[in-house]
Amino acid sequence: MFKKIIFILAICALTYYAVTVHAVECPATGEAFPEVTLSVPENVKEKNYLGLENKGSFKISQIKAEVVILEIFSMYCPHCQKEALLVNELYNIIDNRQDIKEKIKIIGIGAGNTPFEVEVFKNQYDIPFPLFHDESFSIHEAIGDVRTPYFFVFKINKDGTNEIIYSKVGTIEDPEQFLNLILKESAKK
């Protein structure tokens, strides 16, 4: 009898867990992007790009930037493969503008991708900005299992908090126009 009650309680706990885990919604504009932790890149150029000093891990709000463009991608996603060239172009546009290159940084997180798979993607498209892996889908779950490619853009406030100014699935279409939109949205608040 006692065993049965324990069993029922266990199932209730599991049900509660299932409900809470899968109830995570994708963070929207105006909200904060979850404070996820990533590994500091071993590549010195990438480490400098993000303005990181230590080894180990960092929180995304520690990125030295005013605005962060974050792409959720997967090496396996055909749309992300096509998108890679557009995002590279976006990077180059920003990199060529002295007034914003230190203020806007781009990173990518490979949903469900192993480090090797992220590397294959990076090499295939010569991606110049840092990519991170999320092999266990843990970040992906924390942001509501979005489809790929998905773009979040958030402002990092002086107090270390952040605010999302763009949160949308699908292509950025035109890098130049996308950048203008980001600049406009970040100036608003």
Partner: peptide
């Protein structure tokens, strides 16, 4: 108890089935 157990198992398996597809590509919408 049997009924409660069956019902709870049902709920759990339903939730598992409804779990989202990880890393689905926008390509296929």
């Amino acid at each position: 108890h049997g009924i409660i157990l069956t019902a709870l198992c049902g709920i759990v398996s339903l939730l598992l089935c409804l779990s989202p597809v990880h890393g689905a590509s926008e390509q296929f919408k």
